[in-house]
Write a protein that binds this DNA or RNA. Structure first.
Lengths: 233, 233
DNA sequence: CCAAAAGTGTTCGAATTACACCCATGA
DNA sequence: TCATGGGTGTAATTCGAACACTTTTGG
Protein backbone atom coordinates (compact mmCIF):
# COMPACT_ATOMS: atom_id res chain seq x y z
CA UNK A 1 0.00 0.00 0.00
CA UNK A 2 1.21 3.43 -0.89
CA UNK A 3 0.71 6.27 1.59
CA UNK A 4 0.51 9.90 0.55
CA UNK A 5 -1.72 9.29 -2.44
CA UNK A 6 -3.23 12.30 -4.20
CA UNK A 7 0.04 14.16 -4.41
CA UNK A 8 1.77 14.83 -7.68
CA UNK A 9 5.17 13.31 -8.30
CA UNK A 10 7.99 14.97 -10.20
CA UNK A 11 11.22 14.16 -11.92
CA UNK A 12 14.20 14.71 -9.65
CA UNK A 13 17.58 15.49 -11.14
CA UNK A 14 21.09 16.28 -10.07
CA UNK A 15 23.37 18.77 -11.82
CA UNK A 16 27.09 18.78 -11.13
CA UNK A 17 29.07 21.98 -11.10
CA UNK A 18 32.57 20.59 -11.57
CA UNK A 19 35.31 23.11 -10.93
CA UNK A 20 38.82 22.20 -11.95
CA UNK A 21 41.88 24.24 -11.17
CA UNK A 22 44.47 24.24 -13.88
CA UNK A 23 47.80 24.60 -12.13
CA UNK A 24 49.58 25.34 -15.40
CA UNK A 25 47.31 28.04 -16.75
CA UNK A 26 46.55 29.19 -13.20
CA UNK A 27 42.89 29.34 -13.99
CA UNK A 28 39.68 28.00 -12.56
CA UNK A 29 37.71 25.98 -15.11
CA UNK A 30 34.26 24.52 -15.32
CA UNK A 31 33.25 21.23 -16.90
CA UNK A 32 30.54 21.72 -19.51
CA UNK A 33 28.65 19.26 -21.66
CA UNK A 34 27.25 19.62 -25.16
CA UNK A 35 23.73 18.40 -24.57
CA UNK A 36 22.88 15.37 -26.65
CA UNK A 37 19.10 15.25 -26.37
CA UNK A 38 16.03 17.45 -26.58
CA UNK A 39 15.07 19.97 -25.42
CA UNK A 40 18.00 22.31 -26.05
CA UNK A 41 20.04 19.63 -27.78
CA UNK A 42 23.45 20.99 -28.76
CA UNK A 43 23.51 23.72 -26.12
CA UNK A 44 26.01 23.96 -23.27
CA UNK A 45 24.90 22.45 -20.03
CA UNK A 46 26.12 21.21 -16.69
CA UNK A 47 26.66 17.50 -16.21
CA UNK A 48 23.32 16.26 -15.01
CA UNK A 49 21.00 13.31 -14.83
CA UNK A 50 17.93 11.93 -13.16
CA UNK A 51 17.94 10.28 -9.76
CA UNK A 52 17.36 6.54 -9.99
CA UNK A 53 15.30 4.45 -7.65
CA UNK A 54 18.08 2.66 -5.88
CA UNK A 55 20.21 5.70 -5.11
CA UNK A 56 20.16 8.72 -2.83
CA UNK A 57 20.76 12.24 -4.15
CA UNK A 58 24.39 12.04 -3.06
CA UNK A 59 24.75 8.68 -4.79
CA UNK A 60 23.27 10.10 -7.96
CA UNK A 61 25.75 12.96 -7.92
CA UNK A 62 28.66 10.55 -7.44
CA UNK A 63 27.43 8.33 -10.23
CA UNK A 64 27.03 11.18 -12.69
CA UNK A 65 30.47 12.52 -11.82
CA UNK A 66 32.03 9.08 -12.20
CA UNK A 67 30.32 8.54 -15.52
CA UNK A 68 31.55 11.87 -16.82
CA UNK A 69 35.06 12.09 -15.45
CA UNK A 70 35.92 8.60 -14.34
CA UNK A 71 36.87 10.06 -10.98
CA UNK A 72 35.89 8.77 -7.57
CA UNK A 73 36.55 9.90 -4.03
CA UNK A 74 36.58 13.52 -4.97
CA UNK A 75 35.21 16.42 -3.00
CA UNK A 76 31.48 16.63 -3.73
CA UNK A 77 29.05 18.81 -1.88
CA UNK A 78 25.41 19.64 -2.22
CA UNK A 79 24.93 23.23 -3.27
CA UNK A 80 21.30 24.26 -3.76
CA UNK A 81 18.00 22.92 -5.06
CA UNK A 82 16.24 24.57 -7.96
CA UNK A 83 12.50 24.07 -8.14
CA UNK A 84 10.90 26.81 -10.22
CA UNK A 85 7.87 25.57 -12.11
CA UNK A 86 9.08 26.33 -15.62
CA UNK A 87 12.80 25.92 -15.16
CA UNK A 88 12.96 23.00 -17.59
CA UNK A 89 10.63 23.34 -20.58
CA UNK A 90 10.62 19.57 -21.11
CA UNK A 91 8.83 18.70 -17.89
CA UNK A 92 8.60 19.73 -14.28
CA UNK A 93 12.00 18.79 -12.87
CA UNK A 94 13.34 19.57 -9.42
CA UNK A 95 17.11 19.65 -9.60
CA UNK A 96 19.67 19.60 -6.83
CA UNK A 97 23.00 21.12 -7.76
CA UNK A 98 26.20 19.57 -6.45
CA UNK A 99 29.61 21.14 -6.51
CA UNK A 100 32.75 19.11 -7.17
CA UNK A 101 36.38 20.21 -6.97
CA UNK A 102 39.14 18.62 -9.00
CA UNK A 103 42.84 19.24 -9.42
CA UNK A 104 43.69 19.41 -13.11
CA UNK A 105 47.33 18.68 -13.72
CA UNK A 106 47.02 18.36 -17.42
CA UNK A 107 43.58 18.56 -18.88
CA UNK A 108 44.26 16.23 -21.74
CA UNK A 109 45.34 13.53 -19.36
CA UNK A 110 42.18 13.65 -17.28
CA UNK A 111 40.86 10.11 -17.10
CA UNK A 112 38.11 9.04 -19.40
CA UNK A 113 36.29 12.28 -19.86
CA UNK A 114 33.26 11.87 -22.07
CA UNK A 115 34.02 13.40 -25.46
CA UNK A 116 31.07 15.74 -25.16
CA UNK A 117 32.62 17.23 -22.01
CA UNK A 118 34.85 20.29 -22.17
CA UNK A 119 36.75 22.39 -19.68
CA UNK A 120 36.00 26.07 -20.05
CA UNK A 121 37.63 28.94 -18.26
CA UNK A 122 35.38 30.58 -15.68
CA UNK A 123 36.17 33.90 -17.30
CA UNK A 124 34.01 33.96 -20.39
CA UNK A 125 31.60 31.10 -20.02
CA UNK A 126 29.06 30.56 -22.78
CA UNK A 127 25.33 30.76 -22.16
CA UNK A 128 24.02 27.65 -20.46
CA UNK A 129 20.64 25.96 -20.69
CA UNK A 130 17.78 26.51 -18.25
CA UNK A 131 18.95 27.98 -14.95
CA UNK A 132 22.42 26.46 -15.15
CA UNK A 133 24.17 29.83 -15.22
CA UNK A 134 22.40 30.69 -11.99
CA UNK A 135 23.64 27.44 -10.50
CA UNK A 136 27.21 28.19 -11.52
CA UNK A 137 27.11 31.73 -10.16
CA UNK A 138 25.81 30.59 -6.82
CA UNK A 139 28.31 27.75 -6.54
CA UNK A 140 31.19 30.02 -7.46
CA UNK A 141 30.22 32.62 -4.95
CA UNK A 142 29.84 29.91 -2.30
CA UNK A 143 33.27 28.55 -3.24
CA UNK A 144 34.81 31.98 -2.83
CA UNK A 145 33.33 32.22 0.63
CA UNK A 146 34.08 28.67 1.62
CA UNK A 147 37.69 28.64 0.58
CA UNK A 148 38.38 31.38 3.13
CA UNK A 149 37.08 29.40 6.04
CA UNK A 150 37.57 25.74 5.21
CA UNK A 151 40.57 23.96 3.74
CA UNK A 152 38.76 23.09 0.51
CA UNK A 153 41.44 24.76 -1.58
CA UNK A 154 43.55 21.61 -1.23
CA UNK A 155 40.95 19.69 -3.25
CA UNK A 156 41.86 21.88 -6.21
CA UNK A 157 45.58 21.22 -5.87
CA UNK A 158 47.57 18.05 -6.48
CA UNK A 159 48.76 16.02 -3.49
CA UNK A 160 52.09 17.84 -3.54
CA UNK A 161 52.12 21.55 -4.29
CA UNK A 162 54.37 24.53 -3.73
CA UNK A 163 53.38 27.57 -1.71
CA UNK A 164 53.61 29.61 -4.88
CA UNK A 165 51.07 27.31 -6.52
CA UNK A 166 48.77 27.54 -3.55
CA UNK A 167 48.99 31.30 -3.61
CA UNK A 168 48.25 31.36 -7.33
CA UNK A 169 45.13 29.30 -6.69
CA UNK A 170 43.85 31.79 -4.14
CA UNK A 171 44.70 34.67 -6.43
CA UNK A 172 42.76 33.01 -9.26
CA UNK A 173 39.68 32.45 -7.12
CA UNK A 174 39.67 35.85 -5.45
CA UNK A 175 40.67 37.55 -8.69
CA UNK A 176 43.23 39.69 -6.95
CA UNK A 177 46.89 39.87 -6.12
CA UNK A 178 48.08 38.48 -2.83
CA UNK A 179 51.13 39.49 -0.84
CA UNK A 180 53.59 36.61 -0.88
CA UNK A 181 55.09 37.16 2.55
CA UNK A 182 51.79 37.63 4.34
CA UNK A 183 50.26 34.64 2.59
CA UNK A 184 53.12 32.32 3.53
CA UNK A 185 53.28 33.58 7.07
CA UNK A 186 49.58 32.96 7.53
CA UNK A 187 49.27 29.53 5.97
CA UNK A 188 52.47 28.23 7.58
CA UNK A 189 51.48 29.52 11.02
CA UNK A 190 48.40 27.32 10.92
CA UNK A 191 50.60 24.27 11.18
CA UNK A 192 48.60 22.15 8.77
CA UNK A 193 51.15 21.90 5.98
CA UNK A 194 53.95 19.41 5.83
CA UNK A 195 57.12 20.43 4.06
CA UNK A 196 58.60 17.72 1.88
CA UNK A 197 62.27 17.28 1.03
CA UNK A 198 61.46 17.33 -2.65
CA UNK A 199 61.50 20.40 -4.85
CA UNK A 200 59.47 21.36 -7.89
CA UNK A 201 62.03 22.24 -10.59
CA UNK A 202 60.01 22.93 -13.68
CA UNK A 203 59.22 26.58 -13.17
CA UNK A 204 62.48 27.84 -11.66
CA UNK A 205 66.14 27.07 -11.40
CA UNK A 206 66.23 27.42 -7.66
CA UNK A 207 63.25 25.14 -7.26
CA UNK A 208 60.41 25.45 -4.75
CA UNK A 209 59.78 23.03 -1.93
CA UNK A 210 56.71 20.85 -2.16
CA UNK A 211 54.26 20.79 0.72
CA UNK A 212 51.30 18.63 1.44
CA UNK A 213 48.14 19.16 3.45
CA UNK A 214 48.14 17.26 6.74
CA UNK A 215 44.49 16.41 7.10
CA UNK A 216 44.82 14.51 10.38
CA UNK A 217 46.59 17.46 11.95
CA UNK A 218 43.87 19.81 10.67
CA UNK A 219 41.10 17.69 12.09
CA UNK A 220 42.79 17.50 15.46
CA UNK A 221 43.21 21.26 15.57
CA UNK A 222 39.63 21.82 14.47
CA UNK A 223 38.33 19.73 17.35
CA UNK A 224 40.25 21.99 19.72
CA UNK A 225 38.43 25.05 18.45
CA UNK A 226 40.89 26.08 15.74
CA UNK A 227 39.44 27.88 12.75
CA UNK A 228 40.97 27.79 9.31
CA UNK A 229 41.03 31.34 8.10
CA UNK A 230 42.65 32.58 4.95
CA UNK A 231 41.32 36.03 4.27
CA UNK A 232 44.19 37.53 2.40
CA UNK A 233 45.37 40.96 1.33
CA UNK B 1 4.09 15.04 -25.49
CA UNK B 2 6.14 14.40 -22.40
CA UNK B 3 9.92 14.35 -22.72
CA UNK B 4 12.16 12.43 -20.34
CA UNK B 5 10.00 9.34 -20.26
CA UNK B 6 11.37 6.23 -18.58
CA UNK B 7 12.50 8.08 -15.47
CA UNK B 8 10.88 7.51 -12.12
CA UNK B 9 9.08 10.38 -10.46
CA UNK B 10 9.03 11.06 -6.73
CA UNK B 11 7.10 12.98 -4.15
CA UNK B 12 8.71 16.31 -3.38
CA UNK B 13 8.17 17.92 -0.01
CA UNK B 14 9.20 20.99 1.92
CA UNK B 15 9.92 21.01 5.66
CA UNK B 16 10.10 24.28 7.55
CA UNK B 17 12.49 24.79 10.41
CA UNK B 18 10.87 27.75 12.12
CA UNK B 19 13.05 29.38 14.76
CA UNK B 20 11.45 31.88 17.07
CA UNK B 21 13.32 33.98 19.57
CA UNK B 22 11.48 34.56 22.78
CA UNK B 23 12.57 37.97 24.01
CA UNK B 24 11.02 37.36 27.43
CA UNK B 25 12.50 33.98 28.20
CA UNK B 26 15.64 34.88 26.24
CA UNK B 27 15.53 31.57 24.49
CA UNK B 28 15.58 30.29 20.96
CA UNK B 29 12.58 28.09 20.20
CA UNK B 30 11.55 25.78 17.43
CA UNK B 31 8.07 25.27 16.03
CA UNK B 32 7.04 21.61 16.16
CA UNK B 33 3.93 19.85 14.98
CA UNK B 34 2.16 16.81 16.38
CA UNK B 35 1.82 14.78 13.22
CA UNK B 36 -1.81 14.05 12.36
CA UNK B 37 -1.44 11.27 9.81
CA UNK B 38 0.36 8.02 9.19
CA UNK B 39 3.12 7.00 9.23
CA UNK B 40 4.37 8.18 12.63
CA UNK B 41 1.06 9.80 13.51
CA UNK B 42 1.29 11.49 16.90
CA UNK B 43 5.06 12.01 16.79
CA UNK B 44 6.81 15.35 16.76
CA UNK B 45 7.70 16.69 13.36
CA UNK B 46 8.67 19.82 11.51
CA UNK B 47 6.02 21.73 9.64
CA UNK B 48 6.01 20.15 6.23
CA UNK B 49 3.97 19.41 3.16
CA UNK B 50 4.11 18.34 -0.45
CA UNK B 51 4.89 20.66 -3.31
CA UNK B 52 1.87 21.34 -5.47
CA UNK B 53 1.80 21.64 -9.21
CA UNK B 54 1.29 25.36 -9.50
CA UNK B 55 4.00 26.41 -7.06
CA UNK B 56 7.78 26.55 -6.87
CA UNK B 57 9.69 25.15 -3.91
CA UNK B 58 9.94 28.63 -2.41
CA UNK B 59 6.22 29.15 -2.91
CA UNK B 60 5.49 25.86 -1.19
CA UNK B 61 7.59 26.86 1.80
CA UNK B 62 5.77 30.20 2.07
CA UNK B 63 2.41 28.53 1.79
CA UNK B 64 3.17 25.97 4.48
CA UNK B 65 4.50 28.65 6.79
CA UNK B 66 1.46 30.84 6.20
CA UNK B 67 -0.89 27.95 6.83
CA UNK B 68 0.81 27.09 10.08
CA UNK B 69 1.60 30.48 11.55
CA UNK B 70 -0.52 32.92 9.62
CA UNK B 71 2.64 34.93 8.98
CA UNK B 72 3.80 36.39 5.70
CA UNK B 73 6.79 38.41 4.61
CA UNK B 74 9.07 36.71 7.05
CA UNK B 75 12.67 35.69 6.54
CA UNK B 76 12.64 32.33 4.77
CA UNK B 77 15.66 30.65 3.28
CA UNK B 78 16.36 27.33 1.66
CA UNK B 79 18.57 25.20 3.85
CA UNK B 80 19.33 21.75 2.44
CA UNK B 81 17.71 18.93 0.48
CA UNK B 82 17.36 15.48 1.97
CA UNK B 83 17.11 12.61 -0.47
CA UNK B 84 18.11 9.36 1.20
CA UNK B 85 16.20 6.41 -0.18
CA UNK B 86 14.55 5.29 3.04
CA UNK B 87 14.25 8.59 4.85
CA UNK B 88 10.45 8.42 4.86
CA UNK B 89 9.08 4.92 5.39
CA UNK B 90 5.77 5.89 3.76
CA UNK B 91 7.18 6.45 0.29
CA UNK B 92 10.21 7.83 -1.47
CA UNK B 93 10.10 11.53 -0.70
CA UNK B 94 12.73 14.13 -1.52
CA UNK B 95 12.43 16.96 0.93
CA UNK B 96 13.90 20.42 0.85
CA UNK B 97 14.28 22.06 4.23
CA UNK B 98 13.64 25.77 4.63
CA UNK B 99 14.60 27.89 7.60
CA UNK B 100 12.39 30.69 8.88
CA UNK B 101 13.12 33.27 11.56
CA UNK B 102 10.41 34.88 13.67
CA UNK B 103 10.36 37.34 16.56
CA UNK B 104 8.18 35.99 19.35
CA UNK B 105 6.95 38.75 21.59
CA UNK B 106 4.46 36.65 23.41
CA UNK B 107 3.99 33.14 22.21
CA UNK B 108 0.35 32.95 23.14
CA UNK B 109 -0.38 35.98 21.01
CA UNK B 110 1.20 34.56 17.89
CA UNK B 111 -1.37 34.84 15.15
CA UNK B 112 -3.45 31.86 14.22
CA UNK B 113 -1.04 29.10 15.02
CA UNK B 114 -2.50 25.73 14.26
CA UNK B 115 -3.43 24.04 17.52
CA UNK B 116 -1.18 21.09 16.75
CA UNK B 117 1.82 23.45 16.61
CA UNK B 118 3.97 24.08 19.67
CA UNK B 119 7.02 26.17 20.44
CA UNK B 120 9.73 24.14 22.11
CA UNK B 121 12.97 25.38 23.54
CA UNK B 122 16.01 24.42 21.46
CA UNK B 123 17.59 23.08 24.62
CA UNK B 124 15.90 19.76 25.16
CA UNK B 125 14.05 19.02 21.96
CA UNK B 126 12.11 15.78 21.75
CA UNK B 127 12.92 13.11 19.19
CA UNK B 128 11.60 14.05 15.77
CA UNK B 129 10.36 11.83 12.95
CA UNK B 130 12.51 10.68 10.04
CA UNK B 131 15.59 12.83 9.55
CA UNK B 132 14.02 15.96 11.02
CA UNK B 133 16.51 16.16 13.89
CA UNK B 134 19.28 16.18 11.33
CA UNK B 135 17.54 19.02 9.51
CA UNK B 136 17.27 21.03 12.71
CA UNK B 137 20.89 20.48 13.69
CA UNK B 138 22.13 21.58 10.31
CA UNK B 139 19.88 24.64 10.21
CA UNK B 140 20.89 25.66 13.72
CA UNK B 141 24.56 25.35 12.97
CA UNK B 142 24.06 27.36 9.77
CA UNK B 143 22.17 30.00 11.74
CA UNK B 144 25.01 30.27 14.24
CA UNK B 145 27.42 30.86 11.39
CA UNK B 146 25.18 33.16 9.43
CA UNK B 147 24.26 35.45 12.29
CA UNK B 148 27.93 36.42 12.64
CA UNK B 149 28.24 37.61 9.09
CA UNK B 150 24.79 38.78 8.00
CA UNK B 151 22.29 40.95 9.83
CA UNK B 152 19.77 38.12 10.16
CA UNK B 153 19.61 38.53 13.92
CA UNK B 154 17.19 41.41 13.41
CA UNK B 155 14.64 38.97 11.98
CA UNK B 156 14.48 37.38 15.43
CA UNK B 157 13.90 40.67 17.20
CA UNK B 158 10.89 42.96 17.18
CA UNK B 159 11.00 46.15 15.12
CA UNK B 160 12.14 48.11 18.19
CA UNK B 161 14.62 46.48 20.55
CA UNK B 162 17.13 47.53 23.17
CA UNK B 163 20.84 46.80 22.91
CA UNK B 164 20.51 44.61 25.98
CA UNK B 165 17.89 42.53 24.17
CA UNK B 166 20.06 42.24 21.10
CA UNK B 167 22.97 41.13 23.21
CA UNK B 168 20.81 38.55 24.97
CA UNK B 169 19.81 37.16 21.57
CA UNK B 170 23.41 36.69 20.54
CA UNK B 171 24.24 35.15 23.90
CA UNK B 172 21.34 32.71 23.50
CA UNK B 173 22.43 31.65 20.03
CA UNK B 174 26.13 31.38 20.77
CA UNK B 175 25.45 29.85 24.16
CA UNK B 176 28.03 32.04 25.83
CA UNK B 177 28.39 35.26 27.74
CA UNK B 178 29.21 38.42 25.86
CA UNK B 179 30.96 41.51 27.17
CA UNK B 180 28.47 44.37 27.24
CA UNK B 181 30.85 47.19 26.43
CA UNK B 182 32.57 45.43 23.57
CA UNK B 183 29.29 44.29 22.09
CA UNK B 184 27.77 47.77 22.16
CA UNK B 185 30.92 49.38 20.80
CA UNK B 186 31.02 46.98 17.90
CA UNK B 187 27.39 47.05 16.84
CA UNK B 188 27.10 50.82 17.24
CA UNK B 189 30.29 51.46 15.29
CA UNK B 190 28.75 49.75 12.28
CA UNK B 191 26.32 52.63 11.95
CA UNK B 192 23.35 50.50 11.00
CA UNK B 193 21.24 51.08 14.11
CA UNK B 194 18.96 54.02 14.67
CA UNK B 195 18.45 55.18 18.23
CA UNK B 196 14.86 56.08 19.04
CA UNK B 197 13.70 58.62 21.60
CA UNK B 198 11.57 56.00 23.26
CA UNK B 199 12.63 53.80 26.17
CA UNK B 200 11.68 50.30 27.16
CA UNK B 201 10.53 50.54 30.79
CA UNK B 202 9.32 47.10 31.68
CA UNK B 203 12.55 45.51 32.80
CA UNK B 204 14.22 48.43 34.58
CA UNK B 205 13.49 51.66 36.35
CA UNK B 206 16.01 53.64 34.39
CA UNK B 207 14.72 52.29 31.10
CA UNK B 208 16.74 51.33 28.03
CA UNK B 209 16.62 53.16 24.74
CA UNK B 210 15.01 51.40 21.81
CA UNK B 211 16.91 51.05 18.58
CA UNK B 212 15.87 49.87 15.18
CA UNK B 213 17.77 48.32 12.30
CA UNK B 214 18.27 50.71 9.40
CA UNK B 215 18.10 48.37 6.46
CA UNK B 216 18.58 51.02 3.77
CA UNK B 217 21.73 52.22 5.47
CA UNK B 218 23.00 48.65 5.73
CA UNK B 219 22.41 47.96 2.06
CA UNK B 220 24.18 51.15 1.05
CA UNK B 221 27.19 50.24 3.19
CA UNK B 222 27.22 46.68 1.86
CA UNK B 223 27.43 47.94 -1.72
CA UNK B 224 30.52 49.90 -0.74
CA UNK B 225 32.29 46.78 0.44
CA UNK B 226 31.25 46.89 4.10
CA UNK B 227 30.94 43.54 5.84
CA UNK B 228 28.67 42.93 8.77
CA UNK B 229 30.75 41.14 11.35
CA UNK B 230 29.67 40.32 14.85
CA UNK B 231 32.09 37.76 16.18
CA UNK B 232 31.92 38.52 19.85
CA UNK B 233 33.88 37.74 22.99
C1' DC C 1 77.72 35.76 -14.53
C1' DC C 2 73.20 36.87 -14.87
C1' DA C 3 68.24 36.26 -15.29
C1' DA C 4 64.41 34.35 -13.00
C1' DA C 5 61.86 32.72 -9.43
C1' DA C 6 62.01 31.38 -4.27
C1' DG C 7 62.31 32.73 0.11
C1' DT C 8 62.56 35.73 4.18
C1' DG C 9 61.34 40.17 8.74
C1' DT C 10 60.04 44.38 10.47
C1' DT C 11 57.33 48.29 11.31
C1' DC C 12 52.93 50.63 11.86
C1' DG C 13 48.19 51.25 12.61
C1' DA C 14 43.80 49.00 13.56
C1' DA C 15 41.05 45.91 15.91
C1' DT C 16 40.13 43.04 19.80
C1' DT C 17 40.15 41.94 24.48
C1' DA C 18 39.81 42.53 29.39
C1' DC C 19 38.10 45.02 32.88
C1' DA C 20 34.92 48.34 36.96
C1' DC C 21 32.38 52.15 38.09
C1' DC C 22 28.64 55.82 37.73
C1' DC C 23 23.73 56.88 36.37
C1' DA C 24 18.75 57.16 36.56
C1' DT C 25 14.66 55.87 38.60
C1' DG C 26 10.58 53.60 40.83
C1' DA C 27 9.29 51.55 44.80
C1' DT D 1 17.42 55.92 49.99
C1' DC D 2 18.51 51.98 47.95
C1' DA D 3 18.21 48.17 44.81
C1' DT D 4 18.15 47.28 39.99
C1' DG D 5 19.52 47.23 35.56
C1' DG D 6 21.51 50.73 31.86
C1' DG D 7 25.23 52.86 30.23
C1' DT D 8 30.15 54.26 29.58
C1' DG D 9 36.22 54.45 28.62
C1' DT D 10 40.93 53.03 28.62
C1' DA D 11 45.06 50.35 28.48
C1' DA D 12 47.38 46.15 26.75
C1' DT D 13 47.72 43.01 23.26
C1' DT D 14 47.08 40.84 19.03
C1' DC D 15 46.40 40.87 14.24
C1' DG D 16 46.59 42.48 9.54
C1' DA D 17 48.82 45.36 5.97
C1' DA D 18 52.50 47.32 3.67
C1' DC D 19 56.81 46.89 2.01
C1' DA D 20 62.32 45.25 -0.58
C1' DC D 21 66.15 42.67 -0.56
C1' DT D 22 68.91 38.16 -0.59
C1' DT D 23 69.40 33.38 -2.21
C1' DT D 24 69.89 29.71 -5.49
C1' DT D 25 71.02 27.78 -9.76
C1' DG D 26 70.67 26.43 -14.79
C1' DG D 27 71.87 28.16 -18.95
Amino acid sequence: MELYSNYTQYLVAVDCIVFGYDIIEKELKLLLIKRSFEPMKGSWSLAGGFVEEMESLDDAASRILRTLTGLERIYLKQSFTYGEKERDPGARVISTAYCALIALRDINKEPAVNSEAHWRSIAGLPDLIFDHSLMVNKALSDLQNQIKAKPVGFELLPEKFTLVQMQELYAAIYQKQIDKRNFRKKILSMGILEKLDEKERETSKKGAYYYKFNKERYEKLEQNGFYFNLDVS
